[in-house]
């Protein structure tokens, strides 16, 4: 039984992307990704105002034995970051799809996310990787 939320889209590099309906998207990493990394010890977030391009790394999540880049699935400008993660990176381990969100991007082209995976597509991707 999949726990992958169906209200959002997914990148192959394991980020999720939720349309806020106001031209902005909330971005985080998937529960599957946090599980692979293990206990997170630090999250390096972009600064508000940073311009990001789809496919470019703009944040880092660190566990004890690994560090992984987080790629923005869309092009735009960072308009908010989840400052609560600073000092509580474990929030991503506990609630990757909810309180563990990482940053919000205001996009120019809302259609950009259409090419990303839906929940079923992402589940299939994970199944394939395993």
């Amino acid at each position: 039984m999949s726990n992958t939320p169906t209200d959002r889209r997914y990148a192959k590099s394991h980020e999720w992307l939720k349309d806020e309906g106001d031209g902005s998207f909330t971005i985080g990493i998937t529960d599957h990704a946090q599980g692979l990394l293990g206990d997170l010890v630090f999250v390096d977030l972009p600064e508000v105002g940073t311009a990001v391009e789809a496919g470019n790394d703009c944040a880092v999540v660190e566990s004890v034995k690994a560090a992984s880049d987080v790629y923005s699935p869309v092009t735009g400008e960072v308009i908010a970051v989840n400052e609560a993660l600073d000092g509580a990176p474990e929030t991503i381990n506990d609630d990757a799809f909810g309180n563990g969100w990482m940053f919000k991007v205001k996009v120019a082209d809302a259609g950009e996310s259409d090419s990303l995976l839906d929940a079923a597509g992402y589940d299939a991707l994970i199944a394939e990787e395993e």
Partner: peptide
């Protein structure tokens, strides 16, 4: 050993 396995996560957090 002088210590058992250490809590690396705590050390980093």
């Amino acid at each position: 050993m002088p210590v058992r396995r250490l809590d690396d996560v705590r050390a980093a957090r």
